[in-house]
Amino acid sequence: MTWTLIGWLVIGIAAVLLAAFWILFRTHDFYAIRYSAAIQSLQCAQSGAIERGRSRQLVLGNQLNGWTYPGLGLHALACLPGFLSQESVVEGGLSVASGDGELVVFARQIARQYYQQGFSLGLHQVGVQTMLPGPTPWSLTAGLLSTHPQNNSGSTALLGYFGAEALLWSEAALGNGGDVFSAGGTLAGQSVLFLNVRDLLIGERVFMMPGKPDANRVSLAGWLTEDVLRLFLIVGLVVGAILKMVGVL
């Protein structure tokens, strides 16, 4: 058995498990996800911002595709619907920023489709502002820092792919009296946000984000599949190490 074949096996098992759990969750309710204080805090901050009439900001990172952290850009997009609510439309003031044109186009499409289901286009225009503050990581930073004082954000959520420059975004938001939540970033990004962002999801925990708190069965199936795959991986590492030691592998 080659490593490539093992890779295909992993993809196959993951796909089968995901589909099976997705079907099972239609009728069964046998899985619960652990409590996350950070996500709870984000929800409080979001409603707090709406109540106080302050805007909310969502940063989707600066890359849709990334080889070292595959799926982070898509993950940011998966989180977006969770931030779109009727309040966003009525109260206005949700800005979605990214440093990648592709992500902005996707975000715009998601927001538009979401609101077209129940609201007029006029309201949608007021509700969500999708923007590209700058097309590179540092120009995104320059854009966020130079426009932030004007948008009076009460709650900032950092998602997707970003590096250490995120510390400047978070410091600007915190200095403005807002709350900051982060579920994304490279190792460098997470290491610097560890210093000043209390509501921070690290490593694979960033994938707890979409679907909370009202998890749908797609999210539940995804989480359970990840749990099972992780267990398989742990067992695989132990067995692999033993086999390597005895010279079988």
Partner: peptide, 29 residues
């Protein structure tokens, strides 16, 4: 290594959710 392995599992599931049509970031969720 542990963080990257974990994030790879997460990335795999995010990708598969789109490939299986469960998640549709192109709208019409």
């Amino acid at each position: 290594r542990g963080i990257l392995l974990g994030m790879a599992i997460g990335g795999l599931i995010v990708g598969l959710r789109i490939l299986l049509g469960m998640h549709r970031p192109y709208g019409e969720e």
